[in-house]
């Protein structure tokens, strides 16, 4: 089942399934490595629904909570 990226806990690994965002921002995220079916690992979620810090292809990438909400992922066990 696909869930929003914001629903993952810290330390979880997931695969990107869908990004419900403007093409403009989607292109930027893709260029930085958030491709469909690529893996990411949630490193940190800032308190009170803050920004998400994740590992994408070995590098830390931070994105706002409101963007992460629109990214659907499938969690890997």
């Amino acid at each position: 089942m696909n869930i929003a990226l914001t629903h993952l806990d810290e330390g979880k690994v997931a695969v990107i399934k869908e990004m419900d965002l403007d093409n403009h921002i989607k292109k930027r995220l893709m260029a930085l490595g958030l491709l469909p079916n690529s893996r990411l690992k949630v490193l940190r979620i800032a308190p009170l629904k803050g920004a998400i810090l994740m590992d994408v292809g070995g590098y830390p990438l931070a994105i706002s909570h409101d963007l992460a909400e629109k990214i659907l992922v499938r969690e890997l066990e």
Binding site: R28, L53, A62, D66, L67
Partner: peptide, 8 residues
């Protein structure tokens, strides 16, 4: 305003 997208 768009959200943050930043490489650390």
């Amino acid at each position: 305003s768009t959200g943050l997208v930043m490489v650390l």
